[in-house]
Nucleic acid binder design. Structure first.
Lengths: 198, 198
DNA sequence: TCGAACGATACACTATTCTATATCGCATAG
DNA sequence: CTATGCGATATAGAATAGTGTATCGTTCGA
């Protein structure tokens, strides 16, 4: 099925395997379930565009639109470097946290209905996830996520959710402002703290 | 919604509009319905991966996976090409074609008398020539010019000419409509228009 | 031989895509 | 004023994506 996407998916799979990432590991980083990934990779299911993007992003890839004429050029460019370049930092607790948080939000939307604030949180999480954020910033994010988890089922969740949304938004804004167009210099490779919180 | 895919979809839309392809036309080529395309473009719906691929293929684009590190490189490659294509370079084939087409129209007016349609064609050609148009748009223009050349002396020229005038007009409209706030490079670059008549 | 991690699969259920068709308001050309 | 083409929108139904959870067979290392 889905003849068009086959090659892209196969590509993604190859890269995943070449990077030594298991479906389960990827599923956490991408925010999908392992079973989902399995079915996508084996062609039993066709992913939505954003699922696919989530997948590829978790593999350090970008989905790009390229004019047909330029495909060979881009291809040669990519291939030249791709073979030895693909290495993924194995454990990235931050990513895990984000994935977890995103799933939490998704679940909340399910259970209690969508809301502007939840949408905003979701978007902002996705945004922040793409950036290499500093430890300090991540601490804030972690605190906010923890708070969200704590209050998810409470009766007064609404104002809390709103507050969290606002905080995340502010963080995002500050980052955007600080980084006009430049790629951030990749900090955050340290993060010595084990990932054991709930 | 779907923060990740937004930019890709926006890109596709820009390209569609820049190419003067309507949603309806695209829907036929891509095998989706117009309403579907509308909802995707306006963010009201998230396309499946293969729908998106269908869309982009119909726009002469390829969806590619690029390692994050190479994104800037690829981007510059694509952009360079795009701007080069959109740039009016004196002595480029595009300009030649326009010059030729304008001469042809002038000749026709001479021989067969002026007409509203011919006037419109002339007008539109002048407009388009001054504008930076993409490859795809130019292909359409070329096709239309070729048709004009073919039918210039035929007995049933009139309806053909009218049709061509209409097509050009539409192209023009779509371009104007598509670029409300967009920083198109170099309008006033060459109002002097030294005109490479090589 | 045991156990852990891998990928594949099943199943029940929900949410969403996608089609098909029709209409709307709007701009523009005849 | 009428016709046409544009994009946005509505609605109903069929198809399928996606979740959550659980299991299976296999491979591999201890």
């Amino acid at each position: 099925m889905a003849y068009q996407s086959e090659s892209l998916i196969a590509q993604a799979r190859e890269i995943r395997e070449a990077s030594g990432v298991s479906q389960r590991a990827l599923s956490e980083r991408a925010g999908l379930t392992q079973s989902h990934i399995s079915q996508i990779e084996s062609g039993k299911m066709e992913p939505g565009l954003s699922s696919f993007i989530d997948l590829t992003r978790a593999l350090d890839l970008e989905v790009m639109l390229v004019p047909k004429k330029l495909v060979p050029a881009v291809l040669s460019l990519v291939k030249a470097r791709a073979t030895r370049d693909m290495h993924i930092h194995a454990g990235q607790p931050n990513d895990k946290r984000f994935a977890r948080a995103e799933r939490l939000v998704k679940k909340m939307k399910h259970l209690y209905g969508s809301s502007a604030d939840l949408d905003r949180i979701e978007d902002t999480l996705r945004f922040l996830r793409r950036f290499n954020i500093s430890d300090q910033e991540m601490q804030l994010v972690r605190a906010l996520i923890a708070r969200l988890e704590r209050y998810q089922a409470s009766a007064q969740a609404a104002p809390v959710v709103r507050d969290i949304a606002q905080n995340l938004q502010q963080l995002r804004n500050s980052i955007v402002h600080a980084a006009p167009s430049e790629p951030r210099p990749a900090y955050s490779l340290d993060d010595g703290d084990a990932d054991a919180d709930a």
